[in-house]
């Protein structure tokens, strides 16, 4: 039986309440879209395995509650992430303004070398747009991030942005990745890279690794 994945890492979705974090995620993992989704309380989880450069990557996605009050809780999860989506809503100037605050929280609480990507969601709502595309690009440039305008509704740039962040995380961990490639047949060596959650469930998953 083929192994289910080669590497495992965690991506985190953050941004103001109602910008569409859960919708982005549902579109990506289940290809579904519901205009009125149930609010996220605390943190929700999804996962998906994708292939990048011939490597099977299992990504765990942590979908956080957006309300400011919850940040005391959600900040605790930043340190467990290798990649972070910063999401705003193009029809909400305020959610865009808050990105600066979200970025400074990430700088404070996330591990060094964490990969970030900026998302302007709800790109289909052109008539309600309050944040120009170039504003998003400008902000992303300032922070040295990649930028996508997405729409969970019309399925615009969803796969692209998730794949891009996954690539960035893979690149950032190229060193360990080389190890993975050269030792691909050596399951014992790989097991050393396993983190507490990456414990084999059975022989099917006996080779996988996780960076934390």
């Amino acid at each position: 039986m083929a192994k289910q994945y080669d590497v495992l890492f965690r991506l985190l979705l953050i941004g103001d309440s109602g910008v569409g974090k859960t919708c982005l995620l549902c579109r990506f993992t289940d290809n579904e879209f519901h205009s009125s989704h149930i609010s996220t309380i605390g943190v929700d989880f999804k996962m998906k395995t994708i292939e990048v450069d011939g490597i099977k990557v299992r990504i765990q996605i942590w979908d956080t509650a957006g309300q400011e009050r919850y940040q005391t809780i959600t900040k605790q999860y930043y340190r467990r992430a290798q990649g972070i989506f910063l999401v705003y809503d193009i029809s909400s100037e305020r959610s865009y303004q808050h990105i600066m605050k979200w970025v400074s929280d990430v700088d404070e609480y996330a591990p060094e070398g964490v990969q970030k990507i900026l998302i302007g969601n709800k790109a289909d709502e052109e008539q309600k747009r309050q944040v120009g595309r170039e504003q998003g690009q400008q902000l992303a440039k300032e922070y040295g991030m990649d930028f996508y305008e997405t729409s969970a509704c019309t399925n615009l740039n969803i796969k692209e942005s998730f794949t891009r962040l996954t690539e960035l995380v893979l690149q950032a961990h190229r060193k360990e990745l080389e190890g993975l490639r050269t030792r691909a047949s050596n399951e014992l060596a790989l097991a050393e890279l396993e983190e507490e959650e990456g414990k084999p469930e059975g022989p099917a998953n006996s080779s996988k690794s996780c960076w934390c």
């Binding site: 943190v43 929700d44 989880f45 999804k46 996962m47 765990q60 959650e197 990456g198 469930e201």
Partner: peptide, 13 residues
């Protein structure tokens, strides 16, 4: 007890 982290987290939420 048969699940790993992500499956437990998904199950419980």
């Amino acid at each position: 007890t048969k699940m790993d982290f992500i499956h437990m987290a998904q199950f419980l939420t």
